[in-house]
Design a protein around this nucleic acid. Structure first.
Length: 507
DNA sequence: GCGGATCAG
DNA sequence: ATGGCTGATCCGC
């Protein structure tokens, strides 16, 4: 949010940055503003805060200006969002005989000069680390991570996991419970990771440890859209007729969105959020691809009705509809026919060879596993895998370790320190409980308090006092009465709240 | 596939 | 005075 310091641009929440890359390519990334704080929290912390109205037309116009400049450095740059982009500036640098640092400095100066927007940038060997680097010297700065492997691994070693795109609040905590706080901590603990998190996450984490990431950059338009949906929140609603009216409105919205996206959907998904904040989805495969509100409504209604049946007295605070398995209704591009521009356009069929084309380009060395990592412990322990102690955990997928298994994992995370009497303390804006007067700890605590589970617990506690919700109870257990917990991320449902969160916020 | 859940922006 | 909305992906079943 670099611009917020600039009075003349106060209402333009826009910032960009560039990033780059190494080996023989350079990936650049532009990034943006994010306070990461909910408005109502900010207001509590800072009562004199003034909220300005949003103006997305303005932001989009400004973004277009910035992108014009970016295009001069990489015509095929990739917009990641309104205020974020990746550029491969390899060629730009090569053709001018300059280094990425200079090119990006130039680019940022140009953006500033021509749009009056300051931007920050990260310059690195691949998109993943370029993004991380773009956050280092903001606002209005850039950071270069040398492309040498040693430099990259050294950088990753001390990098907090949370800084990596894809490691969010939940995975961060789960890793922390294994003593993994930085990317460097991943490798020595790798023996647990596969069975706890599965193959995909395991490989992802190892790649994080190694500082590997994609080096391919391409216009966002070339990515195939996979779903179109709309949802809205409203005051608690349980009236059947009103719910149908809401469904109708939602269907009408979705029709508009589908028209804008020029596609129809072969699968329709309804999403509801109960007054308890519990989210449910149901989907149906349609006999044919549809986009008309009437069709959407008619196919969604039975799903809504079934939900009402499943959950007596269902009270909603959100409803949404989403189409997947999209079928494009775009007119074939005549230019494409002549092979001129190869615009993305398909008449009826969805599958094209784009995926392959996408991965054809850019295979810098930081996309490939170094040889000495090729045997870094997968499901089976290999010769190379040092047994750093502990019991042998080899076994089938039914091991209690298979999925997180919170109940058997020690949690070395320190307790929230109770502030000493003579110490200053801050009051949490959400739970109002006293917190240590330490910025980092305070922020951590707020994160925790804002977690969905905590909200859920609180609302349900309140709801339970007022009127027990039979709906939740009935789904808290499986038909045979066994626990229905231990779902994917060890995330608990209504029946199994996270004790840590409860304790910290509302205990 | 389905439904739940996490993650990013 | 909103943690809402959109889209992608992953996992277990």
């Amino acid at each position: 949010m670099e611009q917020l310091d600039r009075p003349e641009l106060k209402d333009v929440p826009f910032a960009v940055g560039g990033g780059v890359l190494t080996t023989c390519n350079y990936v650049a990334r532009q990034f943006g503003c994010r306070s990461g704080m909910a408005g109502f929290v900010a207001k509590k912390l800072c009562p004199q805060l003034v909220f300005l109205p949003l103006n997305f037309d303005k932001y989009n116009a400004k973004a277009a200006e910035v992108r014009e400049v970016l295009a001069e450095y990489d015509a095929r740059f990739e917009s990641a969002s309104i205020d974020e982009a990746y550029l491969n500036i390899t060629e730009y640098c090569a053709s001018r005989g300059i280094g990425p640092e200079e090119a990006v400095a130039q680019m940022r100066a140009q953006v500033h000069e021509r749009t009056n927007i300051t931007v920050s940038a990260g310059i690195a060997a691949n998109a993943r680390i370029a993004k991380i680097c773009s956050n280092i010297n903001k606002p209005n700065g850039q950071f270069v991570l040398p492309r040498e492997r040693d430099a990259i691994m050294e950088f990753m070693r001390d990098l907090p996991c949370r800084k990596v795109n894809g490691i969010g609040r939940v995975l961060e905590r789960e890793l922390a419970s294994l003593g993994i706080n930085t990317c460097g901590d991943i490798y020595p603990q790798r023996q647990y990771l596969n069975r706890l998190f599965g193959d995909k996450v395991y490989e992802f984490l190892i790649r994080c440890y190694l500082g590997m990431g994609r080096t391919n950059v391409q216009p966002a338009e070339e990515y195939e859209r996979k779903s179109v949906g709309t949802e809205s929140t409203f005051r608690d609603m349980d009236d059947a007729a009103q719910l149908r009216e809401k469904l109708r409105r939602t269907a009408e919205e979705l029709q508009k969105d589908l028209e804008r996206a020029q596609c129809k959907g072969r699968t329709l998904c309804i999403k509801v959020k109960l007054h308890t904040y519990e989210v449910l989805t149901r989907q149906a495969v349609l006999p044919k691809a549809v986009f008309l509100a009437d069709d959407l409504y008619n196919h969604a209604l039975p799903m809504l009705a079934k939900l009402e049946q499943e959950i007596p007295g269902m009270k909603l605070r959100l409803m949404g509809l989403r189409c997947t398995h999209l079928v494009s209704t775009k007119k074939p591009d005549p230019m494409a026919f002549f092979g001129l521009k190869s615009r993305r356009s398909e008449s009826e069929d969805t599958s094209t060879g784009l995926k392959e084309a996408r991965h054809a380009g850019g295979d810098g060395e930081w996309e490939q596993w170094p040889e000495d990592m090729m045997d870094a412990g997968s499901a089976d322990n290999t010769v190379q895998e040092p047994q750093t102690g502990g019991e042998d955990m080899s076994g089938d997928g039914q091991s209690p370790f298979r999925r997180h298994g919170k109940e058997i994992l020690p949690n070395p995370k320190k307790e929230e320190p109770v502030p000493a009497e003579d110490e200053d303390w801050w009051s949490c804006p959400i739970c109002s409980r006293p917190q240590a007067a330490d910025e980092r700890q305070f922020n951590d605590h707020i994160d925790l308090c804002l977690s969905r589970q905590t909200i859920l617990d609180t609302v349900q506690q309140d709801a339970a006092v007022a009127q027990p919700s039979p709906s939740i109870r009935s789904r808290g257990t499986t038909p045979d009465g066994k626990k229905a917990k231990e779902r994917k991320r060890g995330r608990s449902t209504a029946s199994a709240p996270d004790p840590r969160q409860k304790k910290l916020c509302f205990g």
